[in-house]
Simulated scan of single mutants.
Amino acid sequence: MLGGSGWSFPAVSAVNAAVLFVVFTGVFAAGQARQRHRYVDATWGSAFAVVAVVTLVLSGGGDTQHWDTVRRVLLVVCTVVWGVRLSVHIAWRGRGAPEDPRYAAMLARAGGNPTWAAYSRVYLLQAALVWFISLPVQVGIFVSGHPVAGAVPVVTLMVVGLGLWLVGVGFEGIGDWQLARFKADPANRGRLMTAGLWRYTRHPNYFGDACVWWGLFLIAVSTWPAALTIASPVVMTWLLTSGSGKPLVEARLSAARPGYADYVARTSGFIPRRPRRPDPRHRQDVG
């Protein structure tokens, strides 16, 4: 596949991989100097935005059809908006905070050179994940033509994908805002957030992230080659539900909050739904 600029997709994707290597290596150098590897979390979202912009610039305009332009604009705008918001939120939330317990525990367990362990297991791994998870965005921006089956399915996929992206950004943004307000109140110190969106799912931010990436996949898949990248949103969903997301957070909260088991018993772990049963004992659980 060649873009309007004459670049092939493998070449564009290789450039993205190189850019991510440079970005995450630079963040590693800053984190190593300050002994705070938590800075990499604030890089995660914006790294996806960088990939989208680089892909757009290198793919060129060419003689694209109307729906190619719409798809490209949607993918770039949606990826940048989601990524920048997430990076800003994580950077603001973590200002002045000590090292993330996850990274501290990982480095404590690491054998051999701890510096290499941090670089390879945190930074290089995240760079590789960004590259892989962003493949639907890369393909959707790069490819011209190749509609699934005409204009109506293309429009339908884009509309459904955009709708799912909006749901995801809404859940993630509102959930983060609600939790930030809750934690800002000194009266809530040591308590669990069980109101708002957190009443219907223990992880509205992770549910929102999954919706965002399935939405981007649906927008991209309006051109059929993007269907080959379905493993990317699958991997993202797995990371959120079974990898480095939900399990680690819940292990920490279970140890720190005695009331967390009751919250788990009545509240969905991912997909929002009504609490399983009314609980007369339910109030803001003190941990």
Rank of each mutant, 00 (worst) to 15 (best):
T79M: 05
G83A: 10
I90A: 08
Y39V: 13
Q126V: 03
I141S: 01
L74D: 04
G61S: 13
L124S: 07
A105N: 13
L125R: 12
T115K: 14
A110Y: 00
P136K: 02
G111K: 06
E99Y: 13
R95C: 09
L124Y: 06
V88Y: 12
T43S: 14
T69D: 11
S87A: 11
P101Q: 11
V139C: 05
W82Y: 11
P136R: 02
G112E: 00
G112N: 02
L135E: 12
V73T: 15
T55C: 03
S87C: 09
T79W: 04
P101A: 12
W82A: 03
A118R: 05
A97L: 14
R95V: 12
V77K: 08
A118C: 09
G61V: 13
A128E: 01
T79Q: 06
N113R: 06
Y123K: 04
V50A: 15
V50E: 06
S87D: 10
G83F: 09
R71G: 01
H37N: 05
A97Q: 15
C78S: 14
W116E: 11
V143T: 14
A110Q: 00
G112Y: 02
L56E: 03
V73G: 11
I141P: 00
A118D: 06
A97D: 14
Y103S: 04
R85D: 05
R93S: 13
V73A: 14
R72M: 10
S59G: 04
R38P: 00
G111R: 11
V143K: 00
V77W: 07
T55D: 02
S46E: 05
F142E: 01
Y123C: 03
D100T: 10
V40M: 07
V54R: 02
W131A: 09
P114F: 02
A110T: 00
D68N: 08
V57I: 13
H37E: 03
H66W: 14
G83N: 08
S134M: 02
Q126R: 05
R71F: 03
C78T: 15
L129F: 12
L86P: 11
A117Q: 07
D100A: 10
G111T: 05
A110R: 00
A91C: 10
S134V: 01
A49S: 15
T55V: 07
W82H: 04
R38I: 08
L124V: 14
V81M: 05
T64V: 14
S87Q: 10
A47D: 07
D68I: 06
V122C: 06
V122D: 01
R102W: 07
N113D: 15
H66K: 10
V137E: 00
H89F: 15
R121L: 13
V53F: 09
G111P: 00
S120G: 09
S134W: 01
L124A: 10
A128N: 05
L124W: 12
